[in-house]
């Protein structure tokens, strides 16, 4: 397995937001982290990608603790797409995507080699933005921007791609377009994908497994079918739901919010 969290704990300052998480991500699977606001999904994602240093436990990447590996070694295997991107003013799409090759280049090298240029072009083709390559990134629409940043992560040539709410700022058309694209990458390139998603129904449609988080701890992990019961969703999100059978498989229909229970097991 490419990534594994062992008793992982971490957060900001002294207060751990995520505690005692044991989770392994299999090669070629798509795992989605789901949970209410503040449940620690994004923190867990940042811990997995070494942006945050764990306060306890460890993250094992390819059999080795990531704290003992160099940042570039990790960046060659694992790519992260943060939720909000700083738009580098004036950079063209091609220049932006080229930066994805950084972990594969020596620091003093200015330009990409043949292999690097091929990888950048492939990433542009996968994300279908080849025709925008010489446009400034700031000129693109939200959906195109997100694909440009995805291309940057793909140019990194990772085995595992971590995405923090990649669909948040997109309308439905671009949400589906992006997730379909990730689905193809996942199936055809055997790219392992970990996403934090707000939309339970989208997560259910595309993920192989769901990891549900509640109050900083892993509540449960399993296939969408296993996790998609009114009891489970009710406990994790504190909502009353009905599970519907739809043309795209089972989906939830949220009915109402319910009062939170202290023991982590909400009454349904």
């Amino acid at each position: 397995m490419p990534v594994e969290a062992c008793q992982l704990a971490g957060g900001y300052g002294d207060r751990p937001i995520v505690e005692a998480v044991n989770l392994s991500i299999q090669t070629g699977e798509w795992l989605s982290l789901l949970g209410a606001n503040g449940s620690g999904k994004s923190t867990l994602l940042r811990l997995l990608s070494r942006i945050l240093k764990p306060q306890g436990g460890s993250v094992i990447l390819d059999g080795q603790d990531i704290q003992t590996q160099s940042p570039t070694t990790i960046a060659r295997k694992l790519a992260l797409l943060p939720q909000q991107q700083t738009l580098p003013e004036g950079l063209t799409v091609y220049q932006l995507v080229s930066l994805g090759r950084s972990p594969h280049q020596p620091w003093w090298k200015w330009d990409l080699d043949e292999d690097g240029r091929r990888k950048v072009n492939e990433a542009l083709e996968w994300t279908e933005i080849s025709h925008y390559r010489d446009r400034p990134v700031t000129d693109l629409s939200g959906g195109e921007r997100q694909r440009a940043f995805l291309a940057l992560a793909l140019a990194q040539d990772p085995k595992i791609l971590l995405l923090d709410e990649p669909t948040t700022f997109l309308d439905l058309h671009y949400q589906l377009q992006l997730l379909e694209l990730l689905h193809r990458l996942n199936r055809q390139q055997k790219l392992s994908i970990v996403t934090v998603l707000h939309d339970i129904n989208l997560a259910v449609r595309y993920s192989d497994r769901l990891a549900l988080m509640r109050q900083g701890r892993l509540w449960g992990v399993g296939t969408p079918n296993e996790m998609l019961t009114p009891e489970t969703i009710g406990a994790v999100f504190e909502i009353e739901t009905q599970i519907l059978n739809t043309p795209v498989g089972p989906q939830i229909c949220p009915l109402s919010a319910i009062a939170p229970a202290d023991n982590g097991q909400a009454k349904v």
Partner: peptide, 12 residues
């Protein structure tokens, strides 16, 4: 210029 998270993710 890509921001702290993305730059770190790229091995910086």
């Amino acid at each position: 210029s890509l921001g702290d998270d993305l730059a770190t993710g790229l091995g910086t």
